[in-house]
Write a protein that binds this DNA or RNA. Structure first.
Length: 591
RNA sequence: GGGGCCGUAGCUCAAUUGGUUAGAGUACCGGACUGUCGAUCCGGUGGUUGGGGGUUCGAGUCCCCUCGGCCUCGCCA
């Protein structure tokens, strides 16, 4: 070892010991006769002192020291003079009097310093990721991520799960997200697909009798990126046999409780609260509502139906909805201009036709350009329904169910953040359950699986499969943290007749189903136990646990929004020879 | 594919709204200084204003195209 101690562990207990530390030069404070050199590694920072009494070789050696170069220092640990302690760092009560100093490796003048106050732009951080990863925040986040994955592995091992790896090179399936494809050299013109999730493999493992499977699995989806979405991400993938929804959720409840305790030091009450999908959409307009604050959606369609205001009346008469939220106390904070911004936002982002609003004045009256269209009695009803108090701002959307959900969810999130209705440190865990089995694809005029085609319907909804597919609810559950979908799972169909029926509803005949999932359908015939599981998004969980607002900051080497790696410059063109070996020709695109 | 914000010194930002030689802090280089810890003080190097085209007597500023980053809708669970 080139060192006896790290830069974070020396304290007054080590005084008068001779030690050797290694690390990067963080800063040099030069006083001519003497210098203070902070040497940093991921454990901390230790001050080295050079004084007129220091050996000549040391003085000469440190002349070559510059920021971020790698050094080794041998010296004696001393208590700092009284009043010169640095209380901000763990090693602040001691310093090392240098007796030997070695430049292990020089450093070019770096584009930015890990310890600088103003962070550089993200593209520069990503290009020089090794410098960015030297930053304490990044090192702390990656350490937290390591604690999360260790906690997960310990928990599942304790509960008798077997950690099993599944292939990265798999078969493309047309369902779900766009696949990343890998050309086969041996089978020219054919492709592997990288897994969107190990979904089918884990079902196969249940059939194979591994009744408790777990894997921390890398997954790939070739879709557009967001602050909380990367093309390559990590799932905690888990599956159990002989279970129903409650068993899977209970297992995850225990995991969440343990992680929250061990990592955040907070006690989480179990079971985690559950809410049905219908309730989530009705009260919050979203299937992953942020429950750290209220501001619930209020349905005013019945009042709207009675008013003379044509916009409201028309929407109500057409069977659509007039719903709104009460941004309590926001009336004075939202000028006409800011309300216009909200209107533009819901129009451009969610296709809403408009935003109706009322400010509640001192007298408790609803004030708005549209107020004159309402009878006093109807304004009173709206006021009562929305529990409007003086100073409140009421925001209403008159539109289809779908648009009103999206727009009100958007408004609610925005208002919640702007009005600071929750503590940034707060964590809220809950379940949303009983998702619909199917979404209706209006364009294609067919049903599509909301989760995946192997999701089991609720027992009490089995009859509806045949009569009313849109009203059939699934044994599906999503874990929600602070308004993010942190994971989702289902109990799978293990009855082949129900599976056939679902395929039928999805517009797949037996032949198509065979073509796509033949191996799974075969496997299901060889003694498939009832089973179900869940996948949790580890990146998102780490992001939330670390209090970050984007997923890139908890991924070591993330991709940019255009799915590029700024450091390696992937993706890149390849040699013509490589293409020929794969029998691939690049067509000239006209775009 | 659509909408929005952004790009000026190595880095973080300014530039009186189209007007002289594009500034500051920091980093870097040199000098001064034994107790600093965002050290301080003095001096210096450093610019294709992302790139290209246009309008204009004159463009960092206005217009068009393009490259890149971020947020977002669609997409994705």
């Amino acid at each position: 070892m080139l060192r006896t101690h790290t830069c974070g562990e020396l304290n007054t207990g080590n005084v008068e010991q001779t030690v050797t530390i290694c690390g990067w030069v963080d800063t040099i404070r030069d006083f001519g006769q003497g210098k203070f050199i902070d040497v940093r590694d991921r454990y901390g920072r230790t001050q080295i002192t050079i004084s007129p009494e220091s050996p000549e070789e040391v003085k000469q050696a440190v002349e070559q020291f510059h920021r971020e170069c790698v050094v080794q220092v041998v010296g004696r640990v001393k208590s700092r003079p009284a009043g010169q302690e640095n209380k901000k760092i763990s090693t602040g009560e001691i310093e090392i009097q240098a007796e030997q100093a070695v430049l292990l490796n020089a450093c070019q003048n770096p584009p930015f310093l890990p310890s600088q106050v103003d962070l550089p732009n993200e593209d520069l951080r990503l290009k020089y990721r090794y410098l960015d990863l030297r930053r304490k925040e990044m090192q702390d986040t990656l350490a937290l991520r390591s604690s999360v994955t260790k906690g997960i592995r310990d928990y599942f091992e304790h509960h008798g799960f077997v950690d099993i790896e599944t292939p990265i090179l798999g078969r493309s399936t047309p369902e779900g997200a766009r696949d990343y494809l890998v050309p086969s050299r041996v089978h020219k013109g054919e492709f592997y697909a990288l897994p969107q999730s190990p979904q089918i493999y884990k079902q196969i493992m249940m059939i194979a009798g591994y009744d408790r499977y777990v894997q921390i699995a890398r997954c790939f989806r070739d879709e557009d990126l967001r602050a909380d979405r990367q093309p390559e991400f990590t799932q905690l993938d888990m599956e159990m046999s002989f279970v129903d929804s409650e068993d899977v959720m209970g297992m995850v409840d225990g995991l969440i409780k343990q992680l929250a305790k061990d990592i955040l030091g907070i006690d989480v009450e179990l079971p985690l609260p559950r809410m049905t999908y219908d309730e989530a959409m009705t009260r919050f307009g979203h299937d992953a509502p942020d429950l750290r604050f209220g501001m619930e959606i209020v349905d005013c369609t019945d009042v709207a139906a009675k008013t003379e205001f044509r916009v409201f009346r028309g929407v109500a008469d057409a069977g659509n909805y007039v719903r709104g939220i009460n941004a309590s106390g926001a009336a004075s904070l939202f000028s006409r201009k800011r309300i216009d911004e909200l209107t533009t936002y819901i129009q451009e982002d969610f296709g809403a036709k408009g935003l109706a609003w009322f400010k509640v004045n001192e007298e408790g009256e609803l004030a708005s350009p549209i107020a004159k269209n309402f009878a006093a009695q109807h304004l009173e009803e709206i006021k009562n329904k929305m529990d409007a108090q003086p100073g409140d701002l009421l925001l209403l959307i008159a539109d289809s169910w779908d648009v009103s959900c999206k727009a009100l969810n958007g408004l609610r999130k925005r208002m919640g953040a702007e009005l600071k209705l929750y503590d940034e440190q707060q964590m809220h865990f809950s379940w949303v359950v009983q998702f619909p089995m199917f979404d209706h694809d209006a364009e294609a005029e067919r049903w599509v699986a909301m989760h995946h085609p192997f999701t089991a319907p609720l027992d009490e909804d089995l009859d509806r499969l045949g009569t009313d597919p849109g009203e059939t609810r699934a044994k599906a559950y999503d874990l929600v943290i602070n308004g993010y979908e942190a994971g989702g799972g289902t109990i799978r169909i293990h009855d082949s007749s129900i599976q056939q029926q679902v395929f039928g509803l999805l517009g797949m005949d037996e032949e198509q189903a065979r073509e796509r999932f033949g191996f799974l359908l075969d496997a299901l015939k060889y003694g498939a136990p009832p089973h179900g599981g869940i996948a949790l998004g580890i990146d998102r969980i780490v992001m939330l646990f670390a209090g970050l607002d984007n997923i890139r900051d908890c991924i070591t080497f993330p991709k940019t929004q255009r799915a590029a790696d700024m450091m390696t410059e992937a993706p890149s063109p390849v040699d013509q020879e490589q293409l020929e070996e794969l029998a691939i020709a690049i067509s000239k695109s006209d775009s």
